[in-house]
Nucleic acid binder design. Structure first.
Length: 937
DNA sequence: TTAGGGTTAG
């Protein structure tokens, strides 16, 4: 009696005082202890009984085993009981063996459960259900359904628990036809009014994407518990109806007081999809206030929320502060690092999991494999491949897919194909990964061949397949042979209506050189999403239509669509290329207003824009302090100093970066070497070039070699430049010869120049620069016959020279000038102003340098031609129209002419104006008669 | 019976 009322003390006293104790007294005492939760003490009694040789009743054993499962930490005790039971022949008791199979299920050992199950002489619903629970907890819904079918096959009727289990497993498998059958069985078995069954039906329909039906069931229920509310909110959330999900949470607060940690997890997963800026931090605070901040699952969702918003530092902090972490926490943080590009951190996490003997599963390895996304990860990728084989995870479909993808991204495409061919089952994801790899390695033929084989093997293509194949055909020559037939396939296979496919088609046409088809596709789209707009932005950027990029961004805004990081970066880089400071500033301001201030892509794009618009001071101010500056920011800073002629700062910044322990990359050296070349720092540049391989283990790329050729050539060391080309680790391309030719022009080296021109025209027969440079070279050395010859060839091949153009921007108007331009409404005033300037600077000692003249005429005509240069017209106009003392900002599409450079210097001193001129390559800051380029450009 | 981690493209 005392035990029935949970009064342990008096019961134990009575038990201890009993002169004789029989089986019943022992059993009563033991089952009582288990009932009140004193599991370990119950276990002690069990051991004593075994020692004395008193047989516990099967009921008592079953409850003790159940207790071992419930405690969560009494696995060894449970196994001990199993041993006793097996010896004493109690396994034939259905209650005892069911309890034991349930115990193994709880501790994740489903194969042990199954063994016990198979050896049972007879089974009841609870035995079947217990086996199902084990598989359900392990995340194997297929098994659950198989067991359910076996149970039905043996004519065992189901109960509430087994029905709920199978319904939720069906939802996880997204098996619609089974779902329909189950609804029929629920009605037949009369379980339709059971709360647990109704709840699992809600979640099943949520998983099947049928929110209406989930909602119908919810509305029909006579009562709702917390699980019902959570299930319906989850159903809406899963299907993207986030607002509705919110509405449910609000009603929940009104009609149902109880909220649990699952409610909070669901709410958080919804918030991961809506405006993080607005809600994220608030909800984090709320979680703490509600006391859920130590629930593992809630913390995991919180971590995911920060990860989804691209804030890996905050996610890391959540992880560090978690009182207990499970496998999902570790996997989530690893995935977050991968998404944020922190591959080394992700792999470090895997290492510490292995080191501390944490349990790992296939998800851990898929993330680690995804971290290896570029050639430098080849060794690490191979090690992971080995680990995956050793642990037997190789058989896992998703791991196989991740391996195919990894080798593709690393550039080991033949290895990627080999993995695919050895897979027991090749699904569409595996094929898509292989096709993606071929696209990455720019091999459209192999991508299309893989696409054909895939279909021959009977694997149906999905929209990602189509997107990947399209992504492999992006060269101008691909359009007729591959792109258009693909478009035809897309239409016939019914992929045309897919948003992703449409966007990829748009990109394909643009990259293949057919911007107007892209435009047509864009115009024909009814619902353009952000990705469509971004694709169109990229298409225009690719064709150099910066103005259109900016137009599209403002059009987006007028239509009420917020630009995202991608749109802003594209817009900012367009503004940078056009050197339109006002537009760039407006975009940057808007990005900050929309909460992108901390986004590193955006502040880097903005910094680059300020640099290319001449605002060097702003760049220095806006980039993060050197302690937490990322590699792209360092690169931008170095190139900004180089572009503005601040060469001491270039070297200083580079060394500061090294002191901070940042390893320079490919881009760093391009910026560094370009700066040295423009600053005439020849020996310094050569030293930096040597560092690439020697000190940092990087392979010099052709871009670096071009910089060295430029460096040597511009300083007149033409023989060395030529010999460098012959010793380069790769084949010279057009840019190599163009650079050498340009240097030969400066120094009048006809022989080398001719050779360079020949090599260049072999590689780029249509290019105008070879003719322009050669004719300039001949002109400056007085070889007028050769000049005429080149001109004739150009006419013959229908090649036209790119026209020089300079412009000035005043408020919202751009005034541009060609050579000898007389189309401007204020032409007369402009030419009059030019005469004034000429007079003024001649009085100060200016003498025209006609040695660079390109026409065979007399001196007077040569000088007259110089005064028709576009940059001079722009200068005169700028002087006329801007307030005295303000800085003049002038742009030119080609390199500034050396005599104009001298005129600008005189003007800056004589008229006392600061002038900033941006030519094709760099900025010139003129002040008090000097230029920042120190006359070397 | 409800919630949290993964592969392909963008």
């Amino acid at each position: 009696m005392y035990m029935k009322f949970g009064r342990v003390k008096p019961a134990r006293y009575l038990f201890d005082e009993m002169p004789v104790r029989n089986e019943v007294s022992w059993n009563t005492m033991m089952s009582g202890l288990v009932r009140v939760g004193l599991y370990l003490e119950g276990m002690g009694f069990f051991r004593k009984m075994c020692d004395i040789g008193i047989k516990p009743s099967s009921f008592v054993i079953a409850s003790l085993v159940t207790a071992c499962g419930r405690s969560g930490s009494m696995f060894r005790e449970g196994v001990q009981v199993h041993g006793f039971v097996a010896k004493s022949g109690l396994l034939s008791d259905v209650y005892v063996s069911t309890a034991i199979l349930h115990l193994y299920g709880v501790y994740g050992l489903v194969s042990c459960s199954r063994k016990v199950f198979e050896e049972m002489p007879d089974r009841n619903v609870v035995s079947w259900t217990s086996l199902m629970v084990g598989y359900s907890d392990k995340g194997e819904p297929e098994e659950v359904i198989d067991i359910f079918k076996g149970m039905r096959g043996e004519g065992v009727g189901c109960n509430e628990n087994s029905m709920s289990l199978v319904i939720s497993s069906c939802g996880l498998l997204k098996d619609e036809s089974l779902g329909r059958q189950l609804v029929g069985q629920v009605i037949k078995s009369g379980l339709e009014s059971k709360l647990a069954v109704e709840n699992s039906l809600i979640s099943m329909f949520g998983n099947l994407g049928n929110v209406e039906y989930a909602n119908y069931i919810f509305d029909q229920m006579s009562e709702h518990d917390t699980i019902s509310w959570n299930s319906i909110a989850g159903a809406y959330a899963q299907n993207g109806h986030f607002e509705e999900s919110f509405r449910i949470f609000n009603s929940m607060r009104r009609f149902h007081d109880e909220v649990n940690s699952t409610t909070v997890s669901t709410l958080l997963s919804v918030l991961g999809h809506v405006d993080h800026q607005k809600w994220g931090r608030g909800i984090h605070g709320l979680v703490v206030k509600m006391g859920f901040s130590s629930v593992v699952c809630v913390c995991n969702t919180l971590l995911r929320m920060y990860a989804g918003a691209g804030r890996s530092e905050e996610a890391e902090l959540v992880f560090q502060l978690m009182p207990t972490k499970d496998l999902i926490s570790w996997n989530s943080l690893m995935a977050c690092f991968v998404e944020d590009g922190r591959s080394l951190d992700a792999l470090g996490l895997l290492c510490s999991m292995i080191r501390t003997r944490k349990s790992l599963n296939y998800v851990s390895f898929t993330s680690a494999l995804a971290a290896c996304f570029s050639p430098e990860f080849l060794d690490k990728g191979r090690i992971l491949h080995g680990l995956v084989v050793v642990t037997g995870l190789f058989e896992n479909q998703i791991i196989g897919n991740a391996l195919v993808s990894m080798y593709g991204k690393i550039g080991e495409i033949s290895e990627s194909r080999r993995v695919l061919l050895h897979m027991p089952r090749r699904d569409e994801v595996a094929w898509n990964a292989l096709i993606g790899g071929y696209a990455e390695s720019e091999d459209p033929d192999k991508a299309l061949a893989a696409f054909r084989t895939m279909r021959l093997e009977g694997v149906p293509a999905n929209y990602i397949t189509v997107v990947s194949v399209l992504g492999a055909c992006l060269m101008p020559g691909d359009l007729l042979e591959r792109g258009k037939p693909l478009h035809a396939y897309i239409v016939s296979a019914g992929f045309e209506s897919d948003e992703h496919v449409k966007n990829s088609l748009l990109t394909m046409y643009a990259k293949c050189g057919d911007l107007s088809s892209s435009q047509d596709l864009f115009n024909g789209l009814d619902n353009r999403n952000i990705i469509t707009w971004n694709a169109m932005l990229a298409a225009n950027a690719h064709h150099g239509h910066g103005e259109e990029v900016l137009n599209l961004v403002s059009k987006m805004r007028r239509l009420g669509l917020s630009p995202d990081q991608f749109s802003f970066s594209e817009g900012l880089s367009a503004a940078a290329k056009l050197a339109v400071l006002e537009e760039g500033q407006q975009l940057h301001g808007l990005a900050v207003k929309l909460g992108f201030e901390q986004d590193c892509f955006i502040f880097n794009a903005a910094a680059d824009m300020y640099s290319k618009c001449g605002e060097i001071g702003k760049v220095v101010k806006m980039l993060p302090p050197s302690v937490n500056r990322s590699l792209p920011s360092w690169n931008i800073l170095i190139s900004a100093f180089g572009r503005h002629g601040c060469f001491e700062e270039v070297c200083g910044t580079f060394h500061e970066m090294l002191e901070m322990g940042i390893k320079p990359g490919h881009v760093t050296f391009v910026s560094l070497l370009t700066a040295c070349s423009h600053g005439g720092l020849v020996n310094q540049g050569l030293a930096y070039y040597d560092m690439i391989a020697r000190d940092f283990g990087l392979k010099p790329a052709i871009e670096h070699c071009i910089c060295v050729i430029d460096l040597l050539g511009r300083s007149g060391r033409l023989a060395e430049a030529e010999s460098f080309i012959s010793k380069m680790p790769m084949k010279p391309n057009d840019l190599v010869w163009r650079s050498l030719l340009a240097s030969c022009k400066i120094y009048g080296d006809l022989d080398r120049g001719r050779k360079a021109a020949e090599n260049l025209s072999k590689l780029e027969p249509e290019d105008d620069s070879v003719y322009v440079l050669s004719s300039n070279m001949f002109a400056t050395t007085g070889r007028w016959e050769d000049v005429e010859n080149v001109r004739k060839q150009m006419g013959f091949k229908n090649i036209t020279k790119k026209q020089a153009c300079s412009w000035v921007k005043l408020k919202d108007r751009v005034s541009s000038f060609g050579i000898g331009d007389r189309t401007h409404p204020q032409t007369l005033e402009i030419y009059a102003k030019l005469e004034d300037i000429k007079k003024l600077i001649k009085e100060s000692g200016y003498v025209a340098d006609t040695s660079q003249a390109l026409q065979d005429t007399d001196e007077e005509q040569k000088e007259h031609n110089l005064w028709n240069h576009s940059e001079r017209l722009a200068l005169a106009y700028a002087l006329m129209t801007t307030p005295e003392g303000s800085t003049l900002r002038i742009f030119k599409n080609l390199r500034i002419c050396s005599d104009c450079h001298s005129v600008y210097k005189f003007v800056s001193r004589v008229i006392g104006r600061r002038i900033v001129l941006r030519d094709q390559y760099r900025f010139h800051h003129f002040e008090s008669g000097l230029c920042s380029c120190k006359d070397y450009w």
